[in-house]
Simulated assay, not measured.
Amino acid sequence: MFYYFIRKIIFLIEPEVAHKLILKYLYSQHIQKIINFFLQPLPKKKIKCMGLIFDNVLGTAAGLDKNGEYIDVISKLGFSFIELGTVTPIAQIGNPKPRLFRLIHMEGIINRMGFNNLGVDNLIKNIKKSDFKGIIGINIGKNKDTSIQNAINDYLICIEKTYCYASYIAVNISSPNTTNLRNLQYGTMFDQLLMHIKKKQTEMCRKYSKYVPIAIKISPDLSTTEIIHISKKLIEYKIDAVIATNTTIDYSLIDNKKNNQKQNGGISGLPLQKKSTEIIHILSKILKNKIPIIGVGGINSVDSAQEKIQAGATLIQMYSGLIFHGPAIIRKIIRKV
């Protein structure tokens, strides 16, 4: 109940500013001492996925900590893994502000951030400074100024630079906020992307004697036919996991009579919940456990977390649910799912 009181104050602040303030506040030494004192150890429910052992099913979705600045404090909240990013080869400011909007009445968020980040080299520096020894995923993307025809090179650069510091690498080809990015999910572009990614993974594995799994993050706005095609290609190229899903641009999911309904960008949170679960269900039927699914999109309760698992997800991630329900929801999910 305490968080919901605090949330009223937080929601008076512009969303992007509030996000940074909360993370900085949690990072303070005094708050860290309180967290360490009051938080009881969580039960460990070991799960194997992508050849890695996770302490529980729940991790953070990309976007919560783009630059790896808050790894240590986030890890203490109970998550079994942290996915950093999206990060690009070169730092970029992203889309013009404001670019993050709350749909308070329906526990949703609209964002058009545009892969704002300080670059892959900065992320690696922050990972090196962290004391966290758990599982870290690094979510990678292409720079805005890189043409879609040359996008593969950006992903290969990021794989090469992050390979030794990631537990797994997530390839983001489904954000709606970078022009033409979603084209990489289709046709020969998708084939070429997977082929080059696997080639680079093999090369790095031989170089460092370390196998780092690669996951592909897909859109919730795909047709069943497109999902079938993508699934077959993921199996063909032996991709290690699929993350379902990114944000949606299906504006029919939000109430057009409320504030922020005319904002462009990807919708996350509760409005995305059913759609992402349906995608997981379709993937599960096609993949038949050949490739694990990481479910994300609208997880805001124990029930919604269980729905993702029942639909076929091995692991789940959350971000928006944390904003609307606070850290307590993390521990509820971990204890009961």
Results as ranks from 00 to 15, higher is better:
Lys200Asn: 09
Ser252His: 13
Tyr251Met: 12
Gly269Met: 10
Ser223Trp: 05
Ile157Cys: 12
Ala151Gln: 09
Ser231Asn: 02
Ile157Thr: 14
Gln261Leu: 00
Lys232Glu: 14
Ala170Arg: 00
Ile173Trp: 09
Asn172Trp: 11
Leu181Thr: 05
Ser175Phe: 06
Ile214Asp: 01
Glu160Pro: 02
Asn260Cys: 06
Lys198Val: 02
Asn256Phe: 12
Asp154Thr: 12
Ile173Arg: 09
Ile228Lys: 14
Ile230Asp: 03
Ile227Asn: 01
Lys200Cys: 11
Met204Asn: 12
Ile228Gln: 12
Pro271Gln: 04
Ser209Phe: 11
Ala244Leu: 04
Pro213Lys: 08
Ser209Gln: 12
Tyr165Gly: 02
Tyr251Asn: 13
Val212Cys: 13
Ala241Cys: 06
Leu234Met: 03
Thr162Ile: 01
His196Lys: 15
Leu253Tyr: 06
Glu160His: 11
Ser219Gly: 03
Phe190Val: 05
Thr247His: 04
Leu253Lys: 13
Ile249Asn: 02
Lys217Cys: 03
Ile152Glu: 08
Asp240Tyr: 02
Lys198Thr: 13
Asn264Tyr: 12
Asn246Glu: 05
Leu234Phe: 01
Ile216Tyr: 10
Asn246Ile: 04
Thr178Phe: 04
Asn172Met: 10
Thr162Lys: 01
Lys161Tyr: 10
Gly266Leu: 05
Tyr165Thr: 05
Tyr155Glu: 10
Ser175Gly: 08
Ile157Val: 15
Thr188Phe: 08
Met195Gly: 00
Ile267Lys: 05
Lys275Arg: 13
Ile227Lys: 03
Ile227Cys: 00
Ile239Val: 14
Thr225Cys: 00
Cys164Met: 14
Pro213Val: 09
Cys205Ala: 15
